[in-house]
Design a protein around this nucleic acid. Structure first.
Lengths: 229, 229
DNA sequence: GAAAAAGTATTAAATATTTAATGCTGTTAT
DNA sequence: ATAACAGCATTAAATATTTAATACTTTTTC
């Protein structure tokens, strides 16, 4: 699919794993893994496929993309490196519920699920640590979903802007790697809604939006909108 | 809080655990647990509290209830016994994200989280099994949320009716233990919407609704509504 | 480098959803 | 027993959201 480009570094994963598993097991995982680079827009793992690997995202931004029965694309969440993706898939033997798509150029390591599972079976604390990581991500998605499911347009859009700032770009002034359409797929509304809402907030001096550049000027106001809408 | 009423039976939990942990560990868990009975409407575990126990639901139906910043009640999901609740809470040390409220009379066993965790630390396979259980529940909630977040009213209501039939009451003809208001909190719409939609489907012979009694007459139709709406 | 495609933006009309007002029914508390 | 309350139901008006039509800009493709 893609050439083996970057070195198998595993920096973050190594740091968090070394407390729990020995060097031999770590090397076993490393040996059975493949490093790949994905360009913006490429699919790392496809919805419906049998999950044979766990994805370790080393660099870049990834969207969790879901296509519903009507063929409509939805974005469940967006995450930035470093992160382990597909934890739930690993432990629940079923087809992938959604796709992982690169939103930015990404470096990922595909870890063989069988090998990882066999290391886990001999290292309870390592398993629990991975479980905790997955639970933390789960918790964040739940909050995202609560916003999506029970708030209306403005509250949802405010929430994703705050989320992107806090969890993905780590700044109040960032260059969006998502299109307005993708923002809409994430916020569960139409593209027009996103565009109009951003324009409105621009006029009200809540944000400054110039093409892909987005700056949150009045975070308090945005949080207030998130609360009331 | 509540008197210790029923015997500490653990039937289902014992069955699924015995493959993984020895009798001594199981008894350790059992000894540190408390059996309680909750009446319809009572809160088993409250949003915002520190999670010190994992809840094993032995009998009854429980709603996962969330109160948002605006004070509005939302139902995240509804589950029937037997089931382990609060897996994610166990492994992610943070306050409870939501409450568990009895929707029916319930028998539950509160398992001491510290004891369970220490047993898990010595039994990797047991940990992985619990992880798999939690992942399965996670996956179902995700599908619920996708429906809530990206479908409109009729599709969402169709989905929760199908869900209740398949996962909670295990029949196409059941006595609702939820009020219309609770259905609305689950579907993320107003009570009026639920009432009107059910009336409409009643007229169209998709369902038969007589007070608390609900029968799905035309499941195909309902699934079709779920798809297109 | 030009043509085509995708992204951004705005508006008006059509549709969906919530809110508010009202009445009926059955249950609970005193 | 009855007043008070919660649940169920219906309608109309107010509000929110999507769809459709159109235009301009930027990016991609040949």
């Amino acid at each position: 699919m893609h050439p083996n480009i970057n070195k198998n570094e595993f920096k973050w994963l190594r740091r968090i794993s070394m407390k729990f598993i020995n060097r031999r097991d770590f090397i076993r995982i490393e040996r059975s893994s493949v490093s790949l680079a994905f360009k913006k827009g490429e699919t790392i793992l496809k919805q419906g496929e049998q999950p044979s690997h766990v994805v370790y995202l080393e660099r870049g931004i990834v969207k969790f993309s879901y296509q519903n029965e009507a063929g409509k694309n939805l974005i469940l969440t967006i995450v930035a490196a470093p992160k382990i993706l597909g934890g739930a898939n690993l432990f629940y033997k079923d087809n992938n519920l959604f796709s992982f798509v690169a939103v930015d150029d990404c470096d990922v390591v595909l870890i063989d699920a069988q090998v990882l599972l066999s290391v886990m079976e001999n290292n309870a604390k390592f398993s629990i640590m991975l479980f905790q990581l997955a639970s933390g991500m789960f918790k964040k998605s739940i909050l995202n979903f609560i916003s999506l499911a029970y708030k209306q347009k403005e509250g949802r859009i405010a929430d994703i802007i705050i989320y992107l700032s806090a969890e993905v770009y780590n700044s109040r002034d960032f260059t969006l790697t998502l299109t307005r359409r993708e923002l809409a797929e994430f916020a569960g509304c139409s593209t027009e809604n996103v565009i109009m809402t951003l324009s409105k907030w621009q006029n009200e001096n809540v944000i400054a939006a110039e093409g892909k550049q987005l700056q949150i000027i009045d975070m308090e106001r945005l949080k207030h909108i998130s609360k009331i809408a």
